[in-house]
Amino acid sequence: MDLDQLQQKLMAVAKASPPGDHVPYAFEKRIMARLIAPLPVDVWAVWGRWLWRAVAPCMSVMAALGLWVIATMHPEQESQNLEQAIENTLLSSDDVAGE
């Protein structure tokens, strides 16, 4: 069987019989009733929406706090001299043992 021809034939049939455009009686009234009626409140959806809205302010506060901590941090004097810091760390156990 020629499948291309069958496909074309079926498409021609579908094209030749468009669907009806009849509308149930007073259908527009039904939609209007739905539009005017107050929607039931979905508590979880409202809660979720508020959570999503809170994301941006929370991130901003977190970023601001992070920046503030970095800006106010005073590095210890010893850490500026890496060599001295390593020596202090290595010899600290000897100091403890000597005591």
Binding site: D21, F27, M32
Partner: peptide
């Protein structure tokens, strides 16, 4: 004036019904 939406529905619902009938069978 929400009520003014009703004539819009009445005007275009046959076309929307015809479109929907291409994709769904049950009324």
């Amino acid at each position: 004036d929400v009520a003014q939406f009703e004539p819009l529905i009445a005007r275009y619902q046959p076309r929307v019904f015809a479109t929907a009938r291409r994709y769904a069978r049950r009324e």
